[in-house]
């Protein structure tokens, strides 16, 4: 045996390599079958980050199709409702540089909006109901419609089909319940205050932190 190997080193090496290749090939093949993952988990993760307004501003018919598109290599900055936060999260997830929002698909709204139907003017055509991806509009033919504000994502899709233009997108006003503290101005923006004569011109901070 050893003699044979010693006499035919090249053939022996080839045989050994082929043997190894077969063994590992079989192992990999088995692993591919045994640990097969159904579907594309990355799409699920991307979809979880998207705001689910289903507004179609990205050019895809809903958030999941866009998630699919991102997974297939589309740009991650096409989602105005999600804004920069979503882009950052997507960039984090996909380990890419976070681009700024592509203005072509719309601007990030400063405040969220909800649809509001001026009920006096509603003719009960049900067009907005059919347009709403959230089923957030209630009503029936020839009956006044109304928006379930809690379910409305502010996607805008109901505005265009309305034949009497009785739908407004109204900004959601902050109530005392959902008010939150603002981030203080960044320290580099406060640098101007370092000059003694500029003191007091800058923003006066909340008292709570000072002692």
């Amino acid at each position: 045996m050893l003699e044979t190997i010693a006499q035919h080193p090249i053939a022996a090496a080839l045989l050994a390599l082929i043997g190894l290749a077969l063994v590992f090939g079989a192992l990999l093949g088995f692993a591919a079958v045994r640990f097969k993952v159904e579907g594309d988990p990355i799409v699920e993760q991307i979809d979880n980050l998207l705001p689910q307004t289903q507004c179609g501003q990205c050019g895809y018919p809903g958030c999941r199709p866009y998630a699919q598109a991102i997974a297939n290599g589309d740009a991650i900055n096409k989602c105005p409702p999600g804004g920069q936060t979503t882009i950052n999260e997507l960039a984090d997830l996909l380990d890419v540089e976070a681009p700024t929002l592509d203005e072509e698909h719309g601007e990030e709204a400063d405040v969220p909006t909800v649809a509001f139907i001026r009920e006096d003017e509603c003719i009960g055509c049900t067009k907005c109901i059919q347009a709403c991806p959230m089923d957030a509009i209630l009503g029936a033919a020839k009956q006044m419609h109304t928006v379930i504000a809690d379910e409305c994502t502010g996607c805008d899709l109901c505005v265009e089909p309305c034949p009497v233009d009785c739908i407004d997108m109204i900004p959601v006003s902050t109530t005392i319940k959902d008010w939150k503290w603002e981030l203080p101005a960044a320290s580099h923006e406060q640098a101007a205050n370092l000059i003694a004569t500029d003191r007091g011109r800058g923003q006066i901070q909340q008292s709570g932190e000072a002692a």
């Binding site: 705001p51 689910q52 289903q54 959230m134 089923d135 957030a136 379910e151």
Partner: peptide, 12 residues
């Protein structure tokens, strides 16, 4: 909310 929206959308 977005989860709820997704569920609603998917249900729809």
């Amino acid at each position: 909310k977005s989860d709820r929206s997704r569920r609603r959308f998917e249900f729809r």
